[in-house]
Write a protein that binds this DNA or RNA. Structure first.
Lengths: 111, 111
DNA sequence: TTCATAATTCGATACTACAAGAATTATTGT
DNA sequence: ACAATAATTCTTGTAGTATCGAATTATGAA
């Protein structure tokens, strides 16, 4: 993860509707949800939801998969791991006795 | 951590100079660094650095401690843990068999 | 008190992002 | 091909945020 990628991702998350949508998708796992369903659950206008999901996708945090007439949006967990890893990189000079993030980011195997 | 706090924190981090300053302070631990030193190391105008650090502080990510004529900025690690915890909350419906973030956030004891 | 250093605040200007609704594209079923 | 549904793109107006340099406040030392 480079600085520019992290800035894009953080900027994408720094908005009420997008943050809510992203957190919802985090809970849904790799199956994801279509734009319309997310808009309905969060009570956001469909046209706005499209825009916000596109922003998250351009930032690399989401991917899409078409299923029939629905487009499923789902979290790119690897990207998310990279982002968190970037933020806590070399935390406290890598001194495990002092640091609350000594491990990097967990569980590379599952996603 | 509430949504509004997370938005403030994410928005504060979504800027090149602020992200660089924050990552530098993450590495420094709880001693922190004064504004001038950070500005010098990152080659940022002092007036800009003040503005950016104030933004990070208002977002709750940094705290300050005056030492003589220097003001040391240092990471609020508890806030940072809350932020990351908020982002990965209930990830994958808390199914550890599938999820890459099954643990929440590590090491509450150190900071 | 007076000077030098550290840091912040305050203009003005430019840029980027947001919101709302109308119009457009894409896919499925008849 | 035609209608219906899902989703995106476009347009316009508005609001927030970044930048730069100058001026201001606060601290420590002579």
């Amino acid at each position: 993860m480079k600085s520019d990628d992290a800035i894009m991702a953080l900027g994408a998350l720094a908005q009420e509707d997008r943050l809510a949508a992203f957190r919802l998708l985090m809970m849904e796992g790799s199956q994801g949800l279509p734009s319309g369903t997310i808009a309905e659950r969060l009570d956001i206008a469909p046209t706005r939801m499209s825009f916000h999901l596109a922003t998250l996708e351009k930032a690399g945090l989401l991917n899409t998969r078409r299923e029939g007439r629905h487009i499923h949006y789902f979290v790119d967990y690897q990207k998310m791991r990279s982002l968190l890893g970037f933020l806590i990189e070399d935390c406290c000079g890598n001194n495990p006795a002092v640091c609350c993030f000594p491990v990097g980011v967990p569980n590379q195997e599952t996603h």
